[in-house]
Simulated assay, not measured.
Amino acid sequence: MSFTTRNGTRGARQPKAGRLMKWFNGRAAKRIRGKGGKFMGFNALVLTTVGARSGAERVTPVGWFPTGDDDSWLIVASAAGAAKNPAWYYNLAAHPDQVTIEMAGRRIPVTAEQLHGPERDEAWQRIATAAPRLAQYQVKTDRELPIIRLARRAG
């Protein structure tokens, strides 16, 4: 479970983590928890991580993609094509076994694993076909967008 993607040197502007973003993420998470389904054109879930430095719980709405398995989901650490990975990527790297997702009124404990090599390439092809907007994010940056598998933890 290695999280090895380094920040790039070019990319889109990363959204600022201020009051407006906090408010937006809170509203999005509330909507996803209540109604589930799609948000901004993507299947959405609420990702809860433990802060890499702070140790505090962090909540982020993210789009997800199916794996073909009912017990795992794929997410992309795109940050809209920014040069830097999103903060939640580092939270997953620091605490991959302290992650939960919420979707369709369910809270599910998961373990995070970054995909690499042919497995990542195959997943990327499926994701880019299903969501051309994400393919455009990859064009904006010189870092390889990390793809993370969230697999249901036993118990």
Rank of each mutant, 00 (worst) to 15 (best):
F3G: 13
T4G: 13
T5E: 12
G8P: 11
R10M: 10
R13T: 14
K16R: 15
A17F: 15
L20H: 14
W23G: 01
W23P: 04
F24R: 07
N25S: 05
I32F: 05
R33N: 10
R33I: 08
G34D: 14
F42H: 12
N43H: 12
A44Q: 03
L45A: 00
V46M: 04
L47N: 02
G51M: 02
A52D: 09
A52F: 10
G55D: 02
A56D: 13
A56M: 06
E57H: 10
V59S: 05
T60P: 05
T60G: 04
P61E: 05
P61G: 03
G63S: 06
W64I: 09
F65K: 00
G68N: 07
D70L: 09
D70T: 13
I75G: 01
I75P: 00
A77W: 02
A77P: 11
A77T: 02
A79I: 01
A82L: 04
A82C: 10
A83R: 07
K84M: 06
K84N: 12
K84V: 07
Y90V: 03
N91Y: 08
L92Q: 08
A93D: 01
A94I: 08
P96A: 09
P96L: 08
P96H: 10
P96M: 09
T100A: 02
I101K: 07
I101T: 03
R106D: 08
P109N: 07
P109Y: 08
Q114K: 11
G117V: 11
G117Q: 13
P118E: 15
P118Q: 13
D121K: 11
D121M: 08
D121A: 14
E122Y: 06
E122P: 03
E122V: 15
A123E: 04
A123Y: 02
Q125P: 02
Q125R: 15
R126F: 00
R126Q: 13
A131H: 12
P132A: 12
R133G: 00
R133S: 06
L134S: 04
L134D: 01
L134T: 02
A135I: 02
Y137L: 05
T141W: 06
E144S: 14
E144Y: 02
P146Q: 03
I147P: 06
L150A: 10
A154W: 04
G155K: 12
